[in-house]
């Protein structure tokens, strides 16, 4: 599992941006299909986007808690640039935390149009 790892690696690092990418694709692809096939599904789609947003934020939060643990709960300040296993872990954890922030904001911004747009336009 990506969310219960003892150590950080490249996979845990790219988990938050991957969640963001999947959420983004879902919002835009689903909206394109609904508006092309049957615009009357739009209210349901907006609820689905709200659900997907909560799910994505939840996964990003889990990744963030894990990254916080890998970072050593902030005991050690950056830059984690020593050639030691500990610093490598702290570096990956801290970098993941930054990506968690970015991905969470991006997921919210990506979902915002669904809050305002209430109709498909020809």
């Amino acid at each position: 599992m990506l969310f219960r790892r003892d150590t950080a690696n490249m996979w845990t690092l790219i988990t938050p941006p991957t969640v963001w990418a999947l959420h983004f694709l879902f919002c835009y692809v689903a909206a394109a299909i609904v508006c092309a096939k049957d615009p009357s599904w739009l209210p349901g789609l907006r609820l689905a986007i709200a659900g997907a947003t909560l799910l994505a934020l939840g996964l990003i939060l889990l990744a963030g808690l894990q990254a916080h643990r890998h970072w050593g709960f902030g005991d050690d300040l950056p830059p984690h640039d020593e050639a030691t296993d500990e610093d490598r872990q702290h570096f990956l954890g801290f970098a993941t935390l930054l990506l968690v922030g970015l991905s969470a904001v991006a997921v919210l911004f990506g979902a915002l149009p669904a809050l305002f747009i209430t109709e498909c336009v020809r």
């Binding site: 915002l112 747009i117 209430t118 109709e119």
Partner: peptide
């Protein structure tokens, strides 16, 4: 992030008005 969010919401708010 907060400033961008504010401006983004303000800008998006216009979309339904303009359509």
């Amino acid at each position: 992030t907060l400033i961008l969010a504010g401006l983004l919401i303000y800008g998006l708010r216009l979309m339904p008005v303009l359509r």
